[in-house]
Amino acid sequence: MTRLKADQRHAVRFSLNGKPVEDEAEPRMLLSDFLRHQLGATGTHVGCEHGVCGACTVVVDGMLTRSCLTLAAQVDGCELKTVEGLAPSADRLGVLQQAFRRNHALQCGFCTAGILMSLDHYLSRHPTPSEAEIRDLLSGHICRCTGYTPIIQAALEAAAELTSSKKETSNA
């Protein structure tokens, strides 16, 4: 195991939304700060820096992860997915994102990235969730604007749409 020196910057390399990235970080640098201020991936937001609000949620090697409770050095060699990797292209939104827009499931949009990451991760593993399951999943996120119900609605709509499009694909 590499031994990191507290007062030195060390190279950190990982895959971010399918593309290799590399920069240097002190051992104490948080992943959230590394993503935002070193790599310029500012879509991931920081709301509390103690793991409660969920705004900074990203996916590391297939696991939902609070980037504010993770050191940049910890993800060396990992595969990361952030909100910037959700849309199929720069001018198009994905199914989940579109459902959010249709349902007014965001207002200020600050917490949204984390919520999208949790839902994207969950729906890929649980394609037909119940409302209670979605509510349980999202209880780890705080949104101050929407009162949550439009988010739940968007998630359920997206799940239904994703499932039916998969069926169509498999039927074809």
Binding site: T42, V46, L86, A87, H104, L106, G109
Partner: peptide, 21 residues
């Protein structure tokens, strides 16, 4: 009318421009 918000595309794609961004 409840048209879709012009603000949302950027916010949903991680392209919001908040002060610390």
């Amino acid at each position: 009318r409840s048209i879709e918000r012009v603000e949302d595309a950027a916010l949903l794609a991680g392209r919001g421009r908040f002060i610390d961004d």
